Amino acid sequence: MVTDTSALIINVTLWVLIAFSVLTWTLIVLKVWQYWRQSLANRSFEERFWGASSLDEARGEIASGKTAPVVRLAGAGFEVLDNARQSHPPALKYRGDLLATLERKLKRQLERESRLSDIGLTVLASIGSTAPFVGLFGTVWGIMHALQDISRSGKASLEVVAGPIGEALIATAIGIAVAVPAVLAYNFLMRQSRRKQQALEIFAEDFLHLVAAETAHR
């Protein structure tokens, strides 16, 4: 039998891995729900936005639209346009060429949306990379103390060795079982995040071209 201290350390290791597993699946559910909800909201807003007959009509869709990345992106663009239309001098950050200022504003908003979209993914990557080593630590610690107890007892039969070492190896198995879903979820969610970001970049580019066309006709 392993010592009480060794059993305590192995138990703590297992509880850490269980906490990693709970956190992993919580993040998976929350991020999948977030991406799905935002995808529907983005699609709904873009249909209404591009179905509008003018920029002013499209501007009204922001107030009626749900909070979504593309809504915030469009809002950032219209913020620049609204400040350019004011009679008094705009703030310093809105001065200069309209299209250049608009492009800069859209890029900054895209960066914010990218950071918001990636929240939680670093945690999944960290769990996926560290969980096997946490499990391995518990296994090595358990085997080391099991061998010490066996050495002190002077018995090295299979029945004596198999039990303690088998218990210690469970930590490695659990560590791998925790890491695999975390790594797979990270890769999947990262692809979804990049696709969503690409869609926002396309919208920003189209928005910029639309404003350029409207400006040229005035």
Results as ranks from 00 to 15, higher is better:
residue 216 A to K: 06
residue 42 N to D: 14
residue 135 G to Q: 08
residue 75 G to A: 14
residue 211 V to W: 04
residue 36 W to L: 02
residue 48 R to P: 06
residue 132 P to F: 10
residue 191 R to Q: 05
residue 207 F to H: 03
residue 19 A to M: 09
residue 136 L to A: 08
residue 7 A to F: 14
residue 44 S to L: 13
residue 11 N to G: 13
residue 129 S to Y: 08
residue 138 G to D: 11
residue 10 I to Q: 03
residue 107 K to P: 01
residue 178 V to T: 15
residue 176 I to M: 14
residue 208 L to A: 05
residue 7 A to N: 10
residue 136 L to N: 07
residue 25 W to I: 06
residue 169 L to M: 15
residue 85 R to M: 14
residue 1 M to H: 12
residue 198 Q to N: 09
residue 168 A to C: 04
residue 127 I to T: 08
residue 7 A to H: 08
residue 183 V to P: 07
residue 212 A to Y: 04
residue 106 L to F: 08
residue 90 P to Q: 01
residue 208 L to F: 07
residue 49 F to I: 09
residue 218 R to D: 11
residue 24 T to Q: 02
residue 87 S to L: 11
residue 204 A to C: 11
residue 139 T to Q: 04
residue 56 D to R: 11
residue 133 F to C: 10
residue 24 T to C: 14
residue 194 R to S: 05
residue 17 L to H: 06
residue 144 M to I: 14
residue 153 S to V: 11
residue 1 M to C: 08
residue 37 R to F: 00
residue 188 F to H: 00
residue 147 L to M: 12
residue 60 G to Q: 12
residue 159 E to Y: 09
residue 12 V to A: 15
residue 189 L to V: 04
residue 216 A to D: 06
residue 127 I to D: 05
residue 181 P to C: 00
residue 197 Q to L: 12
residue 15 W to K: 01
residue 92 L to K: 02
residue 23 L to D: 03
residue 203 F to R: 00
residue 113 E to W: 02
residue 19 A to H: 04
residue 137 F to Q: 04
residue 119 I to Q: 09
residue 32 V to T: 00
residue 132 P to T: 08
residue 49 F to S: 09
residue 162 A to M: 01
residue 21 S to L: 13
residue 114 S to A: 13
residue 96 G to V: 07
residue 95 R to K: 02
residue 125 A to V: 09
residue 95 R to C: 06
residue 95 R to H: 02
residue 71 V to I: 15
residue 172 T to A: 06
residue 146 A to H: 03
residue 91 A to D: 13
residue 81 L to M: 15
residue 184 L to A: 10
residue 81 L to Y: 11
residue 182 A to Y: 04
residue 170 I to D: 02
residue 4 D to S: 13
residue 192 Q to M: 12
residue 39 S to V: 02
residue 21 S to C: 14
residue 96 G to R: 00
residue 154 G to M: 13
residue 77 G to M: 14
residue 179 A to Q: 05
residue 194 R to M: 04
residue 130 T to S: 15
residue 100 A to C: 04
residue 30 L to W: 00
residue 3 T to I: 10
residue 93 K to G: 02
residue 152 R to M: 13
residue 7 A to K: 07
residue 41 A to C: 05
residue 15 W to I: 12
residue 172 T to F: 04
